[in-house]
Amino acid sequence: MDGLIKEKLFGRTPEEVAEICRSLEMPKYAAGQIVDWLYKKNILSIDGMTNLAGKYREALKENYEIGLYPPSKVEESVDGTKKYLYQSGIKKFVEAAYIPDGERATLCVSSQVGCKMGCLFCMTGKQGFQGNLTAGEILNQIHSLPEREKLTSVVYMGMGEPFDNLENVLRSIEILTAEWGYGWSPRRITVSTIGIIPAMQAFLERSEANLAVSLHSPFEEERRMLMPVEQVYPLPEVLKTIRTWDFGRQRRISFEYILFKNLNDTPRHVKELARLLNGLRCRINLIRFHPIPDTPLEGSDDQAVQAFKDALNKKDILTTVRASRGEDIWAACGLLSTKEMTKK
């Protein structure tokens, strides 16, 4: 059977593994054993499933493999941030950024190869859309991370729009949070979207993870220049949907806001943001712009960022500035993978 492309076990739910076991005439309990090996233990091959009878391991190996693979490249910043590159097909790469911060460590994972949303400030969009990652490929960025045991949170803010790959994203969250999976609290997970409303509704209904929305301008005309999705899912509709949802005391809603010089960093923007978000228990994360090649946009300077933050806090909107990390290692999402993809 050499040369046969085998199906991957990693990323499957217990029900799916049970179905495979049934088809291979394996005993029912084998499914639980396999799931345990996949998500609770560190094995790289089916041979490692040592509590499974040899004949069943052989039967599995005929058509399946684990499906875990290590990063193909890593770049490390002077500040400790590491950007890992995972290969997902021929000349297709995704990035995962490991960001240690004192006692905490966050991993920013990708959900798609490339992206089709076409945001003006985004490098990943310039690659075009090359495909969705499977749940296994999303989880592999976490499972195969050398620093996995140190992780305190995962954010879906890497390459791609998570809600354009909703089912695989939800499945990866299910595996991350299930008792039979990694057993993480959903509060350690945040998914970031540009605001695809139907998928956002489904996410809110079907998961307990935190939600982050890329906002970037409170004004429709301005936002649609930055983000074409505004034409289809306007911000007021996104906010209306969010307002209908009871986030409870633990689940967080936050808004991402990249500050662009003389574009979206004025008192007028503060005022409109305060009006739009009035009464919503949320946080705004201000982000410094990491310049990308040929961009017409320029990031606001530190003084403007601080002033914007203070002005929003004065309006009683909890606002923080995200620390810029890994600027010496192609920090803007999509830069490293584009560099690798275009290598001769």
């Binding site: 089709k116 003006l120 075009g128 649609r224 220049m225 074409p228 034409q231 040929d294 017409p296 946009l297």
Partner: peptide, 26 residues
């Protein structure tokens, strides 16, 4: 397609068109 919109938008900007005058539907 997103590739067409992004590539054309980049080209227009490179040729001197302000991004404030470009609207894309993907």
């Amino acid at each position: 397609s997103s590739e067409m919109v992004v590539e054309t938008r980049d080209l227009l900007i490179k040729k001197g068109v302000s991004f404030t005058r470009i609207v894309g539907e993907i």
